[in-house]
């Protein structure tokens, strides 16, 4: 069994959170509130030292770099950083009702630049490239032999047909009857298979977290594993 005080604290908090599986109780509430409070404090400190300090303070006063890293090379001064700093401060004016309207300017700037920047890349990578990857390799050639890879070609055919079936399921302009109804039904079945696979991955993720906690409790704390 561990003799480390920190391990005992962590084990106690883990058991408090697990106790929710039995029913809601004061121990769980305590662990929950502690977690939220510590997280908020941690993020605030982390945000200041990892974002605001190096990106604003150090760029305005390069000597400040030595506060966190005494041997650090001093970066060049960058007075232009005052512009994003001012926009950031304008955001805070939302807390003051008489000047709250000024917070719209940095919000508009952030939304506008993000939209403009993402639009082209998303259309290229998430739309055109996806269509190209789905449809383009109709016949898959096995290099360097130059022969057709029938299995890969078959897989590609399944992907193309599956995509068409799923799209047919989401076509609502006309009632799906007869052949089109069958295609839409096939699309629905494929969607169910895809959702099932996604859910299985989600289960695997959650079980991984459970195993990690049990490894900690049984290994690091109790010394059984």
């Amino acid at each position: 069994m561990s003799t480390s005080f920190e391990v005992w604290i962590a084990a106690a908090l883990t058991l408090m959170v697990f106790s929710f599986l039995w029913r809601d109780n004061p121990f769980y509430k305590f662990a929950e509130h502690l977690f939220v409070g510590v997280s908020a404090g941690y993020w605030m400190v982390l945000g200041f030292w990892s974002t605001l300090w190096p990106n604003a303070v150090v760029k305005l006063v390069p000597e400040a770099a030595r506060v966190t890293e005494p041997a650090a090379a001093l970066p060049d001064r960058d007075p232009l950083v005052i512009i994003p700093l001012a926009l950031g401060l304008l955001m805070l004016l939302r807390l003051w009702p008489r000047a709250a309207w000024l917070a719209r300017w940095p919000t508009a700037f952030a939304v506008g630049t993000t939209l403009g920047y993402n639009l082209v890349r998303t259309v290229r990578s998430d739309f055109l490239a996806q269509i190209h990857a789905t449809v383009a390799p109709g016949l898959v050639i096995r290099t360097p032999a130059g022969a057709i890879d029938w299995i890969a070609t078959g897989n590609q055919g399944v992907i193309v047909a599956g995509t068409a079936c799923c799209l047919a399921y989401f076509t609502y302009t006309r009632t799906a009857r007869r052949a089109r109804g069958g295609v839409a039904r096939a699309g629905l079945l494929l969607l169910m298979v895809a959702f099932g696979a996604s859910f299985a991955y989600a289960v695997m993720s959650r079980v991984s977290l459970l195993i990690s906690r049990l490894q900690f409790l049984l290994g690091d704390w109790l010394g059984l594993a």
Partner: peptide, 9 residues
């Protein structure tokens, strides 16, 4: 970890 993972599944 895949052993316990398999048992859980």
């Amino acid at each position: 970890v895949m052993g316990p993972q398999t048992v859980a599944h």
